[in-house]
């Protein structure tokens, strides 16, 4: 494993598989236990540095670190020196002086974790940077797929929605490709980046044509505000063309699953009855997030010299 987890490309197939296997062992070791805590990272300090509100991701990382007995410091941009104009570099030097062994960073600017990695000695884990990547989300998604379908090699995955602005899509395309899955991106052309042709994924504008041929449908959150910038004419039209409703769910193969990284816009990209269906893995994804992040923290920090 590399010292940092900044993007899906930091993981080769062996590393990615090791993370998933480790998460599975952790899950199994903790299953049914009263004491869901391991002493592995006792005395290590994990800083959650969140420049963007994301309660669910922060809590997931916090729980993961605490279950490994690490000391956790939550450093949120609001109400701290960060909001008073302290630069990312000064914040990094402060964390460095405090002896952070790992910095989990969420930032609205693409590449901020890469910058941070230049300034701290500890491991940097990207918890979502701008419209770039969110590698632990991709790991937990891959873990969830493997758990449900028993494999990743050859699994056909459709990623549907605002690919242009989605860090989840970027990380998933990279990681799923590494793990041997076949990815198809489905979106209106306005929500696909120029240059998407260089990604290891098929591209389609037609959700109905893709659905019968996939094992996994991963719906991305679409912000209704995007229609103000003319990415699509209206929420209604978007939903009609790219939303996953019960009718569309009906054309999926029998074992196919429906995923969503959350938070969902029910009624926009996903209908409530789909989100709550047996095909939906949305709740499992949340639970798997903790074990996957435990695996990442263990693998990055467990052997690193303090």
């Amino acid at each position: 494993m590399k010292r940092h987890l900044l993007e899906a490309a930091d993981l080769d197939r062996a590393d990615a598989t090791l993370v998933l296997d480790t998460a599975a062992q952790i899950d199994q070791a903790l299953a049914g236990r009263e004491v869901k805590k391991l002493p592995t990272l006792r005395g290590r300090t994990v800083v959650n540095l969140f420049y963007e509100d994301s309660t669910r991701t922060r809590i997931s990382f916090e729980l993961a670190a605490k279950r490994l007995s690490a000391d956790v410091i939550n450093f949120s941009a609001k109400g701290s020196s960060v909001s008073k104009g302290e630069s990312l570099k000064d914040t990094a030097l402060t964390l460095e002086a405090m002896g952070a062994d790992a910095v989990v960073v969420r930032h609205s600017s693409s590449g901020a974790p890469h910058r941070l990695a230049n300034w701290v000695r500890g491991s940097v884990v990207n918890a979502g940077d701008g419209t770039h990547e969110h590698p632990t989300q991709a790991l937990l998604d891959a873990y969830t797929i493997r758990q449900r379908l028993g494999r990743l090699e050859g699994v056909r995955v459709a990623i549907v929605g605002d690919v242009l602005h989605s860090r989840v899509a970027r990380s998933n395309v990279g990681l799923l490709h590494t793990l041997g899955a076949d990815v198809t991106l489905v979106a209106p052309p306005t929500l696909l980046p120029v240059g998407v042709g260089s990604w290891p994924a098929e591209v389609s504008y037609d959700l109905d044509a893709v659905l019968p041929k996939v094992d996994v449908v991963m719906m991305l959150r679409v912000q209704a505000e995007r229609m103000n910038a003319s990415f699509f004419p209206s929420a209604r039209e978007y939903s009609r063309r790219y939303g996953l409703d019960a009718r569309r769910m009906g054309v999926l193969p029998d074992d196919a699953i429906v995923m969503h990284p959350g938070p969902m816009n029910r009624g926009m990209e996903i209908a409530a009855e789909v989100a709550d269906s047996a095909r939906s893995t949305i709740v499992e994804q949340v639970a798997n997030g903790v074990s996957t992040r435990m695996a990442v923290l263990y693998l990055l920090l467990g052997g690193a010299p303090a």
Partner: peptide, 10 residues
């Protein structure tokens, strides 16, 4: 762990 490095879990 710091001396031995990480390993796959069993």
């Amino acid at each position: 762990l710091r001396l031995r490095g990480v390993r796959a879990l069993e």
